[in-house]
């Protein structure tokens, strides 16, 4: 069942008289629990595509549908609610709030949701091997630990899709592989779709589908002969 669908979605940036087509019109369907990796050179439009799908950027043309709802028709407040309730974000650098402990990152979500699920938090942290770090602040954790907490935090809200923008960029290859494998395992277990941008070819084996982006065009890797 598809959770996210792009129909001829495109993004053009204007600067004075100059127009830059960052994302060419493209179609894409993402199913629940699917792990998709986007690769491509810098400036190819990967992050633009990710932010469009993430409801942070409105497409210039086409549609982006989340569970059938057109994000382009939503107001900022609704988009904000979608980002909070239906999406999870894992960013390049840690996206944890620096002044909250690991446990408090989850409590903040609870407060905004007006409900708490400490058992689920414990389950996620245990799965990430972070159960003993509940009282640690982000600056007391290593890069890999921060990203594992970020994954747990992203999954905690039961999102439909997780967007991961180079989540392993700051990690060594061994730690990067562990983090991505953990993300994949958790996504599969909880039926959450993951769309991850990475430059690291070693991580591609985790993907169900791989797309390469070049000059704003999305190409299936198999079509490039990189099965």
């Amino acid at each position: 069942m598809s959770v996210l669908e792009l129909k001829r979605a495109a993004k053009t940036f204007k600067s004075g008289d100059t127009e830059t087509q960052a994302v060419q019109p493209l179609d894409l369907t993402v199913d629940a629990g699917e792990f998709i990796i986007l690769t491509g050179p810098s400036g190819s439009g990967k992050t633009t595509l990710l932010t469009m799908m993430g409801g942070l950027l409105t497409p210039t043309s086409g549609q982006i549908l989340l569970n059938g709802q057109d994000l382009g028709r939503m107001k900022e407040k609704q988009l904000s609610q979608v980002r909070f309730a239906d999406y999870g974000f894992i960013l390049q650098s840690s996206n944890l709030i620096p002044f909250l402990t690991v446990d408090e990152q989850f409590r903040l979500v609870d407060r905004l949701n007006k409900k708490s699920d400490e058992a689920y938090e414990a389950e996620l942290l245990a799965a990430m091997g972070m159960a003993g770090e509940k009282q640690s602040k982000p600056n007391q954790l290593s890069g890999g630990q921060k990203q594992r907490v970020a994954i747990a935090r992203a999954l905690y809200n039961h999102p439909a899709v997780i967007f991961a923008d180079e989540p392993t960029a700051a990690l060594d290859s061994e730690r990067a592989a562990q983090v991505v494998q953990t993300l994949r395992d958790q996504a599969k277990e909880h039926h959450v779709a993951v769309i991850m941008v990475t430059h690291d070819d070693d991580l591609l084996k985790a993907a169900d589908r791989i797309y390469n982006m070049v000059d704003g065009k999305l190409k299936d890797v198999e079509s490039l002969g990189r099965s």
């Binding site: 993430g54 904000s80 609610q81 980002r83 909070f84 309730a85 974000f89 996206n95 709030i97 905004l112």
Partner: peptide, 15 residues
């Protein structure tokens, strides 16, 4: 930057 990340995560301006 922290507020920006929170905004990206859907935490409202009001909060």
């Amino acid at each position: 930057s922290v507020y920006g990340i929170m905004r990206a995560q859907g935490i409202s301006n009001r909060t």
